[in-house]
Design a protein around this nucleic acid. Sequence first.
DNA 1: CAGTGGTCTAGACCACCGC
DNA 2: CGGTGGTCTAGACCACTGA
Lengths: 250, 250
Amino acid sequence: MTATTLAMDGPELDGDGPLWLQIRRALAQPIVDGSWPPGTKIPAETELTERYGTSRMTINKALHSLAHDGLVERRRKRGTIVADRAQQHPVFEIWDVAEEVRRAGAIYAFNVYERDIVGVDSEHGRFTGVGAETRLLWLLVEHFSNGQPVQLEERLINLDAIPKAAKESFRKAAPSEWLLKHVPWTQAEHAILAREARGRTAKLLQLRPGSACLVVERQTWDGATPLTFARLWHPGEHHRLVGRFEPRKY
Amino acid sequence: MTATTLAMDGPELDGDGPLWLQIRRALAQPIVDGSWPPGTKIPAETELTERYGTSRMTINKALHSLAHDGLVERRRKRGTIVADRAQQHPVFEIWDVAEEVRRAGAIYAFNVYERDIVGVDSEHGRFTGVGAETRLLWLLVEHFSNGQPVQLEERLINLDAIPKAAKESFRKAAPSEWLLKHVPWTQAEHAILAREARGRTAKLLQLRPGSACLVVERQTWDGATPLTFARLWHPGEHHRLVGRFEPRKY
DNA sequence: CAGTGGTCTAGACCACCGC
DNA sequence: CGGTGGTCTAGACCACTGA
């Protein structure tokens, strides 16, 4: 009976990991890729119970988790619907400029100005937790939206942890995009600060020296192993990081 | 048998709301107030089952939720322990300068420079979602740590939603502290940006005009009702917003 | 009123991992 | 090996709220 509607109710499960996470992914995918725009009604729990052949508690855990992360809104009687801001990037996640620019409908481009292998003693960045003899790949990359600079990226990659990065040309995909696609991580840390653009930084971003920039410093780990450090400069006063949240529960 | 240890295992439940949230609060309180320092072992699920006279699924939901928010770490066999960073302020929550300063062991002070009742047409701030006839309380407040300026606060309060604010002197507690204590909210939105300090802003923060500042704009709602808007200026390059996080699940 | 999510139960099997 | 959390079930009653 339900067989005919299977293809409409979201992707199949991938068989990887706990059931409730599989279901979460299956439902999250059409939300984040836009197939289910905000306002779309998601089938009721009892219906999903049949759809995926599982108990209601398992479905509930998946939906509760999606609601907790703001992808859907749930109300009694009304049901579960895709949240208005489901596609908005939460501030404290790793997001990719390339994706951001393309999503806005602009033409994305990048340029690698510098590429070098350096030690941890270098004046580049503040990569914490790497040994003194660790070889690091240093990159200076600029990102453009319709030809306008939108981000200047200072990047350090731990070659002991990611040796294949040394052989990568970064012609097709920028380092950030390449890393997101090829390197799994388990922890990340952001620091957000304001700095004035000086010298080469100002020049590349086409800013008057002294202009205020929003800088994001980000380091990622895989377990205890530091993977990469990035300092991302965003020009001027127009760049905003936006986040929505709710009160703590205690 | 278990009666003798009851008092040691955390506060009693408050009877308010769902059981699992009560249990969550009961366990969270000693964590955030420091009674259970990082590393403290929390009783096993089966033990808490007896402690609170509930089923294991309910306990599990409370602990899972605490783990999700980074207050505890859980591992099979090792059990549940208070996380190292449990007391660290997550970036995307409402935090209070006063508390921040006191926590660092410094002397906190504040000064209210301006206080006025204005309309939404005013050039102050960008308070969204309030009607044209709404009366707003405007405040300009500066916060100090050991006498040094740490934050300049431009604040708008919706007097239709919070009429008692009009009668408040803000002598004992700064507006931000007072609001946190007296006004419940359900939604908040942050925007983080970099701006150059000019004119009075630079003067009050004791900065050279043109210095880069980290600005946080924050609006809170209670349901659909806008409560308050704040623009918080943080001096110079020394102020950082830090956050830790994990990969998305999809 | 009735559909939907919110919560809770009592039990089960399994996977991990420190002892 | 055995303690602990991870997950899952089948069912139950309740609370809210839109039609």
